[in-house]
Design a protein around this nucleic acid. Structure first.
Length: 646
RNA sequence: GCCGAUGUAGCUCAGUUGGUCAGAGCAGCUGAUUUGUAAUCUGCAGGUCGGGGGUUCGAAUCCCUUCAUCGGCUCCA
C-alpha cells in the first residue's frame, strides 16, 4: 500500500500502482469525469500514470490552468493527427498548449500550402477523429530508437529536437494513428474533446529564429462542451468591440494617416484632451512628490548616444541620423530621454544633501519598429513617455525604489487598474554582450530590485533576458481586450549611465561620488496607456478624464436659449459641455450621446427653464432627477474629486 | 522585415461564374415636424471600387506590382 497526501492535508492509503484517475473514481464518479490531469509530487502528469510510492496528489479539473493545459495539448495532438491524415508526409515542429488554446507548427511540404479555407476541413477531420475515443498511450523510448523512428518518418524538425534531448528522458505519446515526440501530460483519451474551433493561421519561424524556415502555425481552441466554445466566441466578439482602434475611431480620439507615416499617431482634439487630462493629473502628483519638471529637444548629437551606449547597442536599428547641410553635424531622433537628462544633471554641481534629485519630462521619443509590428496605439514609432530619472546616493536606493513602486500602485489604483502583473526583468547571463556595465554593478542593481519588490510584498514573476541594456527592471504589465500583455510602468536601476556621463555629487566627506540613476515611467507611454485605458473601460472613461463631461439636450429648439444659459454657467465652472441642438427628438439625442459615452446628459424643457434646473441623466444609469444648474456644476466637481481621492 | 489574409462613399457592409454593379443602412446636407429620457418623416449629395500596370471587345470582379490595414512570427531602447 502507498500513502497519498491530498492538498488539504488529508491522507489515504491505496494499492501500489494505482493511477490518479482511479483515485478520482474512488472519490467520486463525477470527479473522475471532470478531472483532466494530476500533479504528483509537484510534477504534472497523466491521469493514467501509475503511482508507485507515497506521494502528494492534486487533481486538476478545467478550473486549473494545468487541467486546461493538458486538454489543449491533447487537442493539438488531435489536430496533428487530422493534419497527417489530410496531408500525408506533412512534417511537424512543436505543438504546445498556450494561455488560450493551442497551436501546432507544421511544414506542409514543398509546393503545398494550408490556407484559411482549409481550416474547416481540418476541424471537421478532428471532430471525426475525436468521435471515436482514442487513448493517449505514453511510451518511454531510447534516444537512438527515437532518432530512427523520426528519421524514417523524414521529420527533420523532430530529429533536431531529439538530438538536443538527453537519452533516457524521451517519451512518445500515441493516439489513434499519430505518434509524437512529447513530454506530456495528456488526457487519458481524446474523448472529452467535444468542441473545437481553429482560430487562425500564421507564419512562425522554426524555433523562433528569423534566419530559419518559416513554418505554418495553426491556432485553435477546444472545450469539453459546445456551450463553452459558444461562450468563448461571444467573449471574443465582445472583446473586439472594446478594441481601442475601433473605439478611438468611433469617439474621434486619434487617427493615423499614411501621408504622415505608419506608426505615427495623430491625436484628435478629444483624444488630446484626454491625454492632457492624464498629463495634468500626473504632473500634479509629481510636483507633490518633489519632482522637477524639465524639457528637452527631440534630437540630440550622435555623440550623445555614443556616450550613453544607445548608438553602439541600437544605432543600426534606429532611425538613421540626420545631418546639418553645412557643417555635416549628425543628430539622432531621440530614442530615450535619459542622455538628455544626464546632461541636465551635469549642468549644475550637486551636493549629497540635495539628493535624491527627481527629474521628470513628458518626453516624446522615436524608435524604429518593424512595419509588421505596429499595432494601433500600443506599438508605434513616435510616443511620449511619462519619463523620469531619479539620481540618488547608494544609501537611498532602496527607499527611492520603493517610493516609485508606491507611486505606480497609487496611479493604477486611481485609474482602477486592478488586473496587472509585476515582472522582474533580469539580464540573460548567457548573452552578456547584449548589455553594458560590469557584473558587479549588475548584481547590485538586480539585488536592489528584488529587495524592493519583496519589501512591498509585490507578487512578481522573474524573467531572465528581458532587462534593458543598461540595467534590470521591474515592469508593470496590463492586459488588453484580447488578452495580450503590454508593459506600462517600468522602474529600472542603472549604475552604468552615471559612469558613462561621469555624473557626480559631493559627499559629506567633500569627495566626488557617483550617484545611482533610476529610470522610471508610470504610464509607460501616453499612447500605450490610453490604448489600454480605452480597452479596460470600453471607452466609458471616468468623469475626470472624459474630454466632454456633459451634453445639454433641449427638448425642442424653443429651449435653445435656456440651453445657452446653462452652457455659460457650466463653462464658467470649467466643465466642458456641449449643446445638442439638432432638430431631433429627445430619444434620438439621448441615444446618440449615450453611444458617444458622454458621462452626463442634461435634458431641459419647459419645467427646467422655469425652475433654472437641468434634468440629469447619468451615462449607463438613466434619469437621476432634476438639479439646479449651479448645484450640478458643484456636483461634477465633487464627483471628480471623489474619483481622484486615494 | 517574414508568413497569411484584407482593402468598395466619413462609418458598417452588399455586389453571383468579368457584361447598366457602382448599391444599402448610418453619419452629412434639405425641408417638414417642435418633440420629455436609447433611432420622426421627406428629399439631396457622397466613391476614378487603396495606387499603378497588364489581360480582355469589356475589369470592383482575373494577373503583376506598390501602399496601407488585420492576425501571427521575429524584434522591442
Amino acid at each position: 500500500m502507498i500513502k497519498i497526501t491530498f492538498p488539504d492535508g488529508a491522507q489515504k492509503e491505496f494499492k501500489e500502482g494505482i493511477t490518479s484517475l482511479e483515485i478520482a473514481e474512488q472519490i467520486s464518479p463525477r470527479l473522475a469525469q471532470e478531472v483532466l490531469a494530476a500533479t504528483v509530487n509537484g510534477e504534472v502528469t497523466d491521469l493514467s500514470r501509475p503511482i508507485l510510492a507515497d506521494a502528494t496528489l492534486k487533481l486538476h479539473k478545467w478550473d486549473d490552468a494545468e487541467g486546461r493545459h493538458a486538454f489543449w495539448h491533447s487537442s493539438s495532438h488531435l489536430m496533428a493527427e487530422a493534419l497527417e491524415a489530410l496531408y500525408p508526409g506533412i512534417k511537424f515542429g512543436i505543438g504546445p498548449a498556450i494561455e488560450n488554446g493551442f497551436y501546432y507548427d507544421v511544414d506542409p511540404g514543398e509546393g503545398r500550402t494550408i490556407t484559411e479555407n482549409d481550416l474547416q476541413t481540418i476541424e471537421n477531420k478532428m471532430k471525426e477523429l475525436a468521435a471515436v475515443s482514442h487513448p493517449f498511450v505514453r511510451e518511454e523510448i531510447g534516444k537512438k530508437a527515437a532518432m530512427e523512428l523520426f528519421t524514417a518518418k523524414g521529420d527533420e524538425y523532430k530529429t533536431e529536437l531529439i538530438n538536443e534531448l538527453e537519452d533516457g528522458t524521451i517519451t512518445l505519446y500515441k493516439s489513434g494513428n499519430f505518434n509524437d515526440l512529447c513530454r506530456g501530460p495528456h488526457l487519458p483519451s481524446t474523448e472529452p474533446i467535444k468542441a473545437i474551433k481553429l482560430t487562425g493561421l500564421a507564419g512562425a519561424y522554426w524555433r523562433g529564429d528569423e534566419k530559419r524556415k518559416m513554418l505554418t502555425r495553426i491556432y485553435g481552441i477546444s472545450f469539453p462542451k459546445q456551450k463553452m466554445l459558444d461562450d468563448h466566441l461571444v467573449f471574443l466578439e465582445e472583446a473586439k468591440k472594446r478594441d481601442h482602434r475601433r473605439i478611438g475611431k468611433e469617439l474621434e480620439l486619434f487617427t493615423f494617416s499614411p501621408k504622415v507615416g505608419m506608426g505615427l499617431p495623430l491625436w484628435l482634439p478629444k483624444g488630446a484632451e484626454l491625454r492632457q487630462n492624464l498629463i495634468n493629473f500626473l504632473t500634479g502628483v509629481l510636483k507633490k512628490r518633489g519632482y522637477k519638471i524639465v524639457a528637452t529637444p527631440h534630437i540630440g548629437d550622435v555623440s550623445l548616444y555614443k556616450t550613453s551606449g544607445h548608438y553602439e547597442k541600437y544605432g543600426a536599428d534606429s532611425f538613421k541620423p540626420i545631418a546639418t547641410p553645412q557643417e555635416g553635424e549628425q543628430f539622432m531622433l531621440k530614442p530615450m530621454n535619459c542622455p538628455h537628462h544626464c546632461e541636465i544633471y551635469n549642468a549644475t554641481p550637486h551636493s549629497y544633501r540635495e539628493l535624491p534629485y527627481r527629474m521628470a519630462e513628458f518626453g516624446t521619443v522615436y524608435r524604429y519598429e518593424q512595419s509588421g509590428e505596429l499595432h494601433g496605439l500600443t506599438r508605434v514609432r513616435s510616443f511620449t513617455q511619462d519619463d523620469a530619472h531619479h539620481f540618488c546616493r547608494p544609501d537611498q536606493l532602496l527607499d527611492e525604489f520603493i517610493s516609485i513602486i508606491d507611486l505606480v500602485l497609487y496611479v493604477f489604483r486611481v485609474l482602477n487598474f486592478n488586473d496587472f502583473s509585476a515582472q522582474i526583468s533580469l539580464r540573460d547571463p548567457g548573452n552578456r554582450e547584449k548589455y553594458i556595465g560590469s557584473d558587479e554593478n549588475w548584481e547590485k542593481a538586480e539585488k536592489a530590485i528584488v529587495e524592493a519588490a519583496a519589501a512591498k510584498n509585490l507578487t512578481t514573476t522573474v524573467v531572465k533576458g528581458e532587462a534593458a541594456f543598461y540595467g534590470p527592471k521591474l515592469d508593470f504589465m496590463v492586459k488588453d481586450a484580447i488578452g495580450r500583455k503590454w508593459q506600462l510602468g517600468t522602474i529600472q536601476v542603472d549604475y552604468n549611465m552615471p559612469e558613462r556621463f561621469d555624473l557626480t555629487y559631493n559627499g559629506s566627506d567633500n569627495q566626488k561620488h557617483r550617484p545611482i540613476m533610476i529610470h522610471r515611467a508610470i504610464f509607460g507611454s501616453m499612447e500605450r496607456f490610453v490604448a489600454v485605458l480605452i480597452e479596460n473601460t470600453a471607452g466609458k472613461l471616468p468623469l475626470w478624464l472624459a474630454p466632454e463631461k456633459a451634453v445639454i439636450l433641449p427638448i425642442s429648439d424653443k429651449f435653445n436659449d435656456y440651453a445657452t444659459k446653462v452652457l455659460e454657467i457650466l463653462k464658467n465652472s470649467d466643465i466642458c459641455t456641449l449643446i445638442d441642438d439638432r432638430n431631433e427628438k429627445i430619444g434620438k439625442k439621448i441615444r446618440d450621446n449615450e453611444l458617444r459615452r458622454i458621462p452626463y446628459l442634461l435634458v431641459i424643457g419647459e419645467k427646467e427653464a422655469e425652475n433654472g434646473t437641468v434634468a440629469v441623466r447619468k451615462q449607463g444609469e438613466g434619469d437621476k432627477g432634476e438639479m439646479k444648474t449651479d448645484d450640478f456644476a458643484a456636483f461634477i466637481h465633487a464627483e471628480i474629486e471623489k474619483e481622484l481621492e486615494y
